[in-house]
């Protein structure tokens, strides 16, 4: 029973990780919050649903499609809310992204209605039993995709040229510029990657819930933001690990206490972590300075 809950928690947590990575990538580069990220995550499900239903594409194509569409939406967010912002007004993008997120949610409601839409049964729900643990094919798919994406991201950041450019800008913008890194292109790239991940995470969540919900940006998205902070602002690995921790904590709280307490699990962790480690669980000197 306990192990089963832990497994379920890891499945949920991998989704928090994917979204939190998006927040953290942008924060690492710009030290600015992108609060529209949760809504890009939300609309990812609707992009996927549209491709599945209206165009009749197979599931893998829906994933690729919502990756690309969400990524492009991320570029729009960057263009409207971040490109023109001057460093001395660092609250401005936080607010304009909230406003843009509001627009994205409202657009979704205009196009797809205000009620959650159910997702067609595209994945055969087969339950695997591994050593007494029950894992559904959907759970396995979600976890598989999340893990593959995280490994890809890790390779991208550590092994490729653009990845090292990204890490360089995150470390110190001026130095990176002096070393010949094209900073604005790196930022655009980071927005695309983070939004693409959110788009896929949105579709994965919709598969898990069975519906594409217009309100997940505020519920799941906000919790993912908390996860990012728990992991340390701008710390990608921290976001990955803390997403899983948060997911497990939430599912365990759900199983052994009540839904109300489960809903607060992430926030309780956030408050406790910030009291004892103000720079986040995996925060370093870099993370403290960024705040």
């Amino acid at each position: 029973m306990f192990l089963q809950q832990v497994v379920n928690g890891i499945m949920l947590g991998s989704m928090y990780s994917l979204v939190a990575i998006g927040y953290t990538l942008v924060f690492g580069l710009l030290s600015l919050l992108n609060l529209a990220h949760g809504d890009v995550f939300m609309i990812g499900a609707f992009f996927g649903l549209f491709l599945l239903m209206a165009l009749g594409l197979p599931l893998w194509a829906a994933f690729v499609g919502s990756l690309v569409l969400a990524g492009v939406l991320g570029l729009v967010v960057e263009l409207l809310c971040f490109r023109r912002v001057k460093p001395e007004y660092h609250f401005a993008p936080a607010l304009s992204t909230v406003a843009l997120g509001m627009v994205i949610v409202e657009m979704t409601r205009r196009v797809w209605g205000t009620q959650p839409l159910s997702i067609p049964k595209t994945v055969e729900a087969v339950n695997f039993s591994i050593g007494g643990l029950l894992i559904s094919s959907i759970q396995l798919l979600i976890f598989g995709i999340a893990i593959v994406l995280m490994i890809c991201l890790e390779l991208l950041l550590q092994r490729t040229r653009i990845g090292s450019a990204l890490r360089a800008v995150a470390e110190h913008v001026t130095t990176a510029k002096l070393l010949g890194v094209n900073v604005s292109r790196t930022i655009i790239f980071a927005f695309f990657v983070s939004s693409a991940l959110a788009g896929i995470a949105g579709l994965l969540l919709a598969l898990r819930l069975g519906v594409a919900d217009q309100n997940v940006g505020l519920s799941y998205g906000l919790k993912a933001l908390a996860v990012m902070v728990i992991g340390g602002l701008g710390n990608v690995r921290g976001a990955m690990v803390c997403g899983i921790i948060a997911g497990v904590a939430e599912v365990l709280a759900q199983a052994y206490t009540s839904a109300a307490i489960a809903n607060l699990a992430v926030w309780a962790i956030l408050i406790v972590v910030l009291i004892f480690r103000p720079q986040g669980l995996f925060g370093t000197r870099l993370q403290t300075e960024r705040a």
């Binding site: 936080a94 906000l222 908390a226 902070v229 309780a268 408050i271 910030l274 103000p278 986040g280 705040a291």
Partner: peptide, 12 residues
Amino acid sequence: VRGMYLAMMTIG
């Protein structure tokens, strides 16, 4: 906590 950490804590 300061800055964005504080903002997040107050959301919590």
